[in-house]
């Protein structure tokens, strides 16, 4: 499966979690694609941590406003009804529990719902930006990522990289599976139609609780 198809599948599945009226913050990269798969008429309010709500699609070529970008510096639009604010207010919204769902990428996730997504010591140290606040503050944290990286498991018993936050992840969506984080551990809820429970278990280092596994809609 190509990377693009995997990512589209993940984004499409997560879009079905977003309901009318929710305040949602999408991380950079794969999470941003979730907005492309919202059902028509679904009125989700997207928050952009650089300082506004009402984040809309990219503008037409030649209509970019240099003061209207997303948190990844790409030109976007602010929809009618949007609102601008400073960084303190932005994180009042984020940290204060006023974001219903955040969707974030991950390097590693573990059985306790710990997330590592901001640095690889000695290699990539870009900084955490708003990720630590989002993970701690959003009411629901959904991780969007490919199931493995170069054949290595990313869903681990215990994260090895520096953490972004402890025990905050609620759900993990990959091209192979949908996994819910519970107090008992990771529950395998859905698998993709082109894989098996055995295969998912083989690609996952963490222990999966397997009871009633549904087929993921792709």
């Amino acid at each position: 499966m190509s990377k693009d198809i995997k990512r589209e599948r993940i984004a499409r599945r997560i879009a079905s979690e977003l309901q009318d009226g929710m305040v949602v913050n999408l991380g950079i990269g794969l999470p941003t694609q979730v907005a492309n798969f919202l059902p028509r008429g679904n009125d989700v309010l997207f928050q952009s941590e650089n300082g506004f709500v009402g984040l809309g699609p990219a503008p037409l070529l030649g209509h970019e406003d240099p003061n209207v970008t997303n948190a990844g510096s790409q030109p976007v639009t602010i929809l009618p009804g949007g609102a601008c604010f400073d960084s303190a207010m932005s994180f009042v919204i984020i940290r204060g529990g006023h974001v219903d769902v955040t969707v974030l990428g991950a390097l590693e996730v573990d059985e306790a719902g710990n997330l590592a997504n901001w640095m690889v010591p000695g290699k990539i140290v870009p900084g955490m930006g708003g990720a630590m606040d989002l993970t701690v503050g959003a009411r629901r944290v959904i991780v969007a990522m490919e199931h493995t990286a170069k054949g290595n498991a990313k869903i681990l018993k215990k994260c090895t990289l520096p953490l972004t936050a402890i025990q905050q992840v609620d759900m993990i969506v990959t091209e192979m599976a949908v996994i819910e984080v519970t107090r008992q551990g990771l529950v395998l809820k859905e698998i993709a139609p082109d894989t098996t429970v055995m295969e998912v278990v083989a690609q996952t280092e963490a222990t999966l609780i397997i009871n009633d596994v549904k087929v993921m809609e792709v």
Partner: peptide, 23 residues
């Protein structure tokens, strides 16, 4: 963390010694 940095600056301007954050 970005939200912490924002609040540290706000506290600096608001006459506060610091802030408490779960982040």
């Amino acid at each position: 963390p970005q939200g912490t940095l924002a609040e540290q600056v706000r506290a600096g301007g608001a006459g506060l010694g610091g802030i408490l954050t779960p982040t």
